[in-house]
């Protein structure tokens, strides 16, 4: 999750050709990738799509550390392979579909700041929903700051130790509880300042 702020930083500060593309175009590109994932059922076709996405990833010179994020959904796909009775073709098909989807999304996010994506989505989705997306995005960063402080406190109280599972569970739960209470307090302050700035159920984003 800490990578979220790094991803956001790369998207905002990046100066490669994909960063300069319009967010609408990139979202249309992502929809086409999804269409490919849904319709393609042959390994060479999916390999071609994946190869194109990986090539774009490296041409754009997105840090290699971000590339590891694209493998993350494979953890979930592993569980699903039991359905097929370990059919190699099916496994490769699933893994390639997973990798195409995650590489496409990470490529989009590493070249387009979240608020820009939300503002494009705002043209087709209800205002209230987009406002909720914006506020959640903002809140993630607020909570990450609180989490950082909480981690220090948690570490001083013993943190997580496999030898003491019950105490560890209590520590983790207290940390989440603390995170929530602090977050709720912060949300109340956020609402007051939003009201002062004339918030009326809609957030306007002025892009670059």
């Amino acid at each position: 999750m800490i990578q979220l702020s790094y991803l956001d930083y790369i998207a905002v500060e990046g100066k490669r050709f994909l960063h300069r593309f319009s967010p609408t175009l990139k979202i249309i590109g992502m929809v086409l990738v999804l269409l490919g994932i849904v319709t393609l059922r042959s390994l060479p076709g999916l390999l071609l799509l994946y190869g194109t996405l990986v090539a774009l990833f490296f041409i754009t010179r997105i840090p290699i550390k971000i590339f590891s994020l694209t493998f993350y959904p494979l953890i979930f796909a592993v569980l699903f392979i039991f359905i097929s009775g370990f059919q190699i073709h099916f496994l490769l098909l699933i893994f390639l579909k997973v990798l195409c989807g995650s590489t496409g999304v990470v490529l989009l996010l590493a070249t387009t700041p979240y608020p820009m994506i939300f503002s494009v989505l705002g043209r087709i989705l209800p205002d209230s929903f987009v406002t909720a997306l914006f506020l959640t995005y903002r809140s993630v960063f607020i909570l990450l700051n609180i989490l950082e402080e909480t981690q220090h406190a948690l570490y001083l109280r013993g943190g997580f130790q496999w030898r003491h599972p019950w105490r560890s569970l209590i520590n983790i739960s207290n940390a989440f509880g603390h995170l929530m209470i602090k977050g709720i307090d912060a949300s109340e302050k956020m609402y007051e300042s939003m009201l002062l700035r004339g918030f009326k159920n809609k957030i306007f984003y002025r892009g670059k």
Partner: peptide
């Protein structure tokens, strides 16, 4: 009511996102 609870909704959604990211 929705407008008043929007920040809370955002904050709880963010907490859920954080929880789901700790794998």
């Amino acid at each position: 009511a929705l407008s008043r609870r929007f920040p809370l909704l955002g904050m709880m959604a963010a907490a859920m996102v954080l929880g789901a990211s700790v794998e």
